[in-house]
Design a protein around this nucleic acid. Structure first.
Length: 270
DNA sequence: ATGACGTCCTGCCTGC
DNA sequence: TGCAGGCAGGACGTCA
């Protein structure tokens, strides 16, 4: 996904910047950001956890957290990027130096954008607070185990806690625990090494497949060309309450935990 | 240190 | 059929 953004916007300059939702900018204000970032060149695009990190020259980093509905869209040339605002939930538009517009769409306006003029991304609090990349080759089971000693006691909350592993949300936490046959409310302290290993393996498998499928799109996620992800057809538990478990036919249940829905199979995951 | 809860915002779903 | 109200969701701040 970040590769799409790199392809369409990499090396381009930000000629002009518009928004109709300044509240998305949490650091600094939009007007300061616009003044400083205008004319900058996009020199790199990366992802850390759920955050999209755009590297700019002169030295700065532009961070986007999509939450549920934020995503980039490539928009054709238009008279003014301002014309796109309010259309298809677009709240931020960059005019690139190739004449295209790059839009940030966010139906629910939950996304968060930060701009840091620095050459050291490690000094950015938002990034510094993130845990390990779950799919990193050097993130092995022993590393995983060592992390599982602090944080939320319930395994599902722990998997979703970005300070330990970065990038897992409600959908994939549910799917991982179903695959690993672990009750979402189990305490991390009570898990056997074998159970921890099952979770670790399921995490790698589920996330690798989700990346290959270009995301899930349960709601309205879209890629930069406005295409939905394909992982939704693989979901076994998420929003499947009442539907039979794919292993044992027991109806999938839904339970609220900490204000969040958890989907699970009472028989398989106990 | 952990957890519960409210907040943000919109579209969809439910119920009358 | 139409409308009002409820609800979900990631991270953060506040209060136990």
């Amino acid at each position: 996904m970040v590769g799409d953004l790199r392809t369409r916007a990499g090396k381009r300059k930000l000629v002009e910047i518009w928004t109709d939702e300044e509240k998305l900018f949490h650091h600094p204000s939009f007007s300061v950001f616009r003044e400083k970032a205008k004319g900058s060149q996009i020199t790199g695009v990366k992802r850390r956890g759920k955050i999209i990190v755009m590297e700019l020259k002169p030295s700065a980093f532009l961070l986007f957290h999509p939450k549920m509905t934020g995503h980039f869209l490539i928009l054709g040339p238009a008279a003014s990027g301002r014309d796109y605002l309010g259309d298809r939930s677009i709240h931020l538009v960059f005019l690139l130096d190739n004449g295209y517009h790059l839009g940030w769409s966010d139906q629910r306006k939950f996304s968060r954008i930060e701009y840091w003029p620095t050459d050291d991304p490690n000094g950015i609090p938002w990034l510094a607070g993130l845990g390990r990349e779950p799919l990193a080759d050097d993130f092995g089971f022993s590393d995983f185990r060592k992390l599982m000693v602090r944080g939320p006691s319930r395994i599902k909350s722990w998997l979703m806690d970005q300070r330990f592993i970065a990038g897992i949300g409600n959908i994939y936490a549910s799917e991982i625990l179903w695959r690993a046959k672990i009750d979402p409310e189990r305490s991390i302290k009570e898990l056997s090494v074998g159970e921890q290993r099952r979770i670790f393996i399921a995490m790698k498998e589920i996330l690798r497949q989700a990346v290959a499928d270009r995301g899930t799109s349960v709601a309205e996620f879209r890629d930069i060309e406005d295409r939905p992800g394909n992982y939704a057809v693989r979901l076994k538990t998420y929003r499947k309450n009442g539907r039979p478990c794919r292993r044992c036919q027991e109806p999938i249940r839904r339970k609220m935990t900490g204000g969040r829905s958890t989907y699970y199979c009472l028989l398989c995951q106990s």
